[in-house]
Amino acid sequence: MSDAGVDEDVVLVANEEKEVLRVGEPEVSHIDIKKARFPCCLVWTPLPVVAWLVPFIGHVGICREDGVILDFAGPYFVNVDNFAFGSTAKYLRLNPEKCCFPPHLSGHTCSDPFQHTDRGTAISWDDGLETTMRNYQHKLYNLFTCNCHSFVANALNRMAYRGSIKWNLVNVLALVFFKGQYVSYWALVRTYAPFVVVLILGLVMTGWPFLIAWSIFVGLMVTWFLIGTYCLRGLIES
């Protein structure tokens, strides 16, 4: 066999090996709503009953590079690829390049390297989620102090997303609510239709007293989370 023939065989084998590697690599760029794959995204769905009264209160999760959803769904339990409380209604794509994955202390790109190191760092997006998941598998779920938003905030702090280690329940909720996009018009209807129905029924049946009671309920919830997050540090997990 000639040298030219040998070279062609080598090139062919090399190309085949590259193709095999390409097939085995996880897809990290394509969002597939039908298959519930949201690579490096925050995902959100309305929380039953509670969202009927306060539509911005929902269940949130964070996704691996391959798009699989992780969410803190109950005491000592983190869901993997089984988003609790229904399919995703909103999602927000995050950029892993805005995270701080320091190989050593001098390699930090975040605002506070020492505090980031003290709280725990990660070497990649998936490593940060894996560590957070192991941590929350030993935590007791509580809607008011340690919930799905706390889980997401902990992961973002571990990765120092946007150079910050001050992620908490409030700014995670605000990020998804104001920046997230609905997966479809039906998801938008599914989010707000129960609230509109409850509001109309309440006004028809009881009138203004219902609106006053609703306002007090929403005000108490917002006040609790704001005070628990920014005034009573440590009360709400993050």
Rank of each mutant, 00 (worst) to 15 (best):
S2V: 11
D3R: 11
A4S: 09
D7C: 09
V10R: 07
V11E: 14
V13S: 10
V13K: 12
N15Y: 06
E19Y: 04
E19P: 03
V20C: 03
L21V: 08
R22G: 10
G24V: 10
E25C: 12
V28C: 13
V28M: 06
V28G: 02
D32T: 07
D32F: 03
I33R: 07
L42S: 12
L42D: 12
W44K: 04
P46H: 10
P48G: 13
V50W: 01
V54A: 04
I57A: 05
V60M: 12
R64S: 09
G67S: 09
P75S: 15
P75R: 15
V78P: 00
V78K: 01
N82K: 09
F83K: 02
K98E: 14
K98C: 02
C99F: 05
T109F: 00
S111M: 05
H116P: 14
H116K: 02
T117E: 04
R119G: 01
T121P: 02
S124K: 02
W125E: 09
W125N: 00
D127C: 04
G128D: 01
E130P: 03
T131G: 06
M133F: 10
R134N: 07
Y136F: 15
H138L: 14
H138R: 14
L140M: 13
L140K: 15
Y141N: 15
L143H: 05
C146S: 04
C148S: 11
H149W: 04
H149A: 07
S150R: 11
L156N: 07
N157H: 14
G163A: 15
K166I: 10
V176L: 13
F177P: 01
F177W: 14
K179E: 13
K179H: 15
V183S: 05
Y185R: 03
T191Q: 06
W208M: 03
I212N: 07
A213N: 06
A213K: 04
W214K: 11
W214S: 07
S215Q: 12
V218W: 05
L220N: 00
T223E: 03
W224L: 13
L226T: 10
G228W: 10
Y230I: 12
L232C: 13
L232W: 11
E237I: 02
